[in-house]
Design a protein around this nucleic acid. Structure first.
Length: 301
DNA sequence: AATTCGGGCAACCGCGAAAGT
DNA sequence: CACTTTCGCGGTTGCCCGAAT
């Protein structure tokens, strides 16, 4: 035995609303409000409709200040930006666009904006792959020459094949790699963070001033899928790439401002982005197309 | 002129969450 | 605390209309 239906589906009218029905519903709600009960409303209003149908009609079409027609560039930008951060949460997206309904936005996205958005993403992705290949080659040559000259015996023994995707070395000293320039170039980290001489630790980093327990040593080699960094200010940032598809950004310090990608939306918690592209890719693409400027500030409000 | 196809949009459906009893 | 009812959301469907053949 399933759940009882909200109305007698066989005896309620379905399909498009007539002007008379619209007028009845509008008139009733303007005089009496919804009464907090949509199921009872159609009977009271003299409509032969399901309560859910009345609710939908009111919210999407009849209620005051509904905006119909073309979406502006600004609205496009907000929708793309929010979609990249939170996915298909249409009601939340609609709450940032006064006068627009979730249904409207959803339809607009599915019919028009999605194509526009992913055209931009795929062309930029291609471009980014070329860039990445270039950086990878550069990194490999830098790293091999640096290791020949300066690295400790343990590091020399590492299989470095797996570091192609890592923020790469601009210099190497003792057991640490500085990856500021590469991170800046690839926008892996926000610029203000990159400027603070970031380090990936290899083994124990004697220069790290954070509590030893928070400076988790990392391994090197092809199995590496997580890397931490200490910047000497007591902060530690954990980045993980999982299946090359998700980025987790976790922040382990005193509510400081560095939040990566979806982590911002969740107040610093780790967030996954089950999209075809990583959050970072989309954010990078959006910012390079002037689409994503305010996304995080919107979400923090 | 008739038919087919595809885009756009309104509305429906089913499910999970929240509120009420 | 368990159960029922209602709400709200996101995914999907189906109709309408204009363009293409």
């Amino acid at each position: 035995m399933g759940r009882a239906p909200c109305c007698d589906k066989a005896n309620v009218k379905k399909g498009p609303w007539s002007p008379e029905e619209d007028a009845k519903l509008k008139d009733f709600i303007e005089k009496n409000g919804t009464g907090g009960n949509w199921i009872a409303l159609p009977h009271k209003a003299g409509l032969n409709r399901c309560g859910k149908s009345c609710r939908l009609r009111w919210l999407n079409y009849l209620r005051p200040n509904i905006k119909h027609g073309e979406f502006s560039d600004e609205e496009d930008r907000i929708i793309c930006s929010l979609f990249a951060n939170i996915g298909s949460r249409w009601s939340i997206i609609a709450s940032h666009l006064p006068g627009r309904t979730d249904n409207d936005i959803k339809n607009y996205w599915n019919t028009k904006l999605k194509k526009k958005f992913f055209c931009i993403v795929s062309s930029q992705k291609k471009h980014q792959q070329q860039q990445q290949q270039h950086h990878q080659q550069l990194f490999s040559s830098l790293l091999s020459s640096s290791i020949r000259n300066t690295a400790t015996p343990e590091l020399r023994g590492c299989d470095l094949a797996g570091f192609g995707e890592l923020p790469a070395a601009a210099s190497i000293s003792h057991n640490t790699l500085s990856f500021a320039s590469y991170a800046a170039a690839t926008s892996l980290l926000p610029l203000h963070q990159v400027e603070r001489s970031s380090m990936i630790n290899f083994g124990l980093d004697p220069s790290c001033t954070s509590p030893a327990s928070s400076c988790t040593p990392i391994s090197c080699g092809t199995e590496l899928d997580q890397y931490d960094h200490c910047d000497g200010s007591g902060e530690q940032i954990n980045l993980s790439i999982v299946n090359d598809n998700y980025i987790y950004g976790g922040l382990e310090d005193h509510n400081n401002t560095l939040l990566l990608d979806g982590a911002a939306a969740a107040g610093g918690r780790s967030v996954e982005a089950p999209l075809d592209y990583t959050f970072e890719e989309i954010k990078h693409l959006l910012s390079s197309n002037n689409l994503g400027n305010n996304s995080l500030s919107i979400l923090k409000n």
